[in-house]
Design a protein around this nucleic acid. Structure first.
Lengths: 141, 141
DNA sequence: GTAGTTGCAAATTCTTTGCCACCGT
DNA sequence: ACGGTGGCAAAGAATTTGCAACTAC
């Protein structure tokens, strides 16, 4: 139910500085790209060049701790962010473009639960990342 | 099957220096722990204190490129290594101890394949990590 | 007004690398 | 012998932090 990030920040009682408004505005339109801090910083400084990258780092961390953003660490080493307002899902990373596709497979989740219970554990969280190439794209194998 | 790492290195024609022998010897006994470079370095310098951490980094990288080691990056940020001589498997990380348990669930793999094919992709590699707590241990929830 | 924020640069953490002496084959 | 290696310390890349000035509430 598409509530704005800004609204969530207000609900959480976060102090909304000019910098945070800009960062949140960028996230509002870019969160589907799973941007990293560098990408966010680039868009943010287009709007307000005086914002420092430290502020971007501090703000995404704040929003993560507030449960508004989710930090992902894919195989490229950097942290990439998405909004936390959707159902749990996993990620398919298109190796030819870097694009991230979200998917959810309840059957896989159920199997995980079962398996982990069999091992005597209870899942706290998990991550499944699939790195893949498009089928129709040329088979560079 | 249980071929020694040292033997694999020789087969690959890697020059076996004193330092590499020590590092390989440590890996031989510690690879089931999925040690990180720091852990390896600690054990290595117990045997030969003159070996530098740069050499450990260079050697694990070399062994990874030779297909002898697999580098994992779990949620703790550092690279952790295991030998590449076993079947593909995924990891369950025991949050209470940090211990890593390997598992293989062909059903999950099959579902992944099917799903990814449906999305028009072909899997190159994937990673599934499950972070969990023991059931009998106290429920810190 | 005051505590929370910011920018800047310096610090951290993990990993890589340039350089020159050294050692395996 | 000679080209691949190792040690050391400096360089990198991503991220965090100390501090003094600033600003939202």
């Amino acid at each position: 139910m598409r509530e704005t990030i800004l609204h969530k920040c207000e609900v959480k009682g976060l102090r909304m500085t000019g910098q945070r408004r800009v960062i949140v505005q960028v996230l509002e339109t870019a969160h589907q790209d799973h941007p990293d801090v560098e990408a966010l910083y680039a868009k943010v400084t287009e709007i307000d060049p005086s914002i420092s990258i430290a502020t971007v780092y501090r703000t995404v961390k704040l929003l993560e701790e507030a449960g508004i953003l989710i930090r992902n660490e894919f195989a490229d080493g950097r942290a990439r962010y998405e909004t936390a307002d959707r159902e749990h899902h996993d990620h398919l990373i298109d190796l030819s473009t870097g694009k991230v596709i979200e998917f959810c497979e309840p059957e896989i989740e159920a199997l995980q639960e079962k398996l982990v219970a069999k091992l005597g554990y209870k899942i706290r969280f998990h991550r499944l990342e699939i790195y893949a190439d498009p089928i129709n794209s040329d088979e560079t194998d």
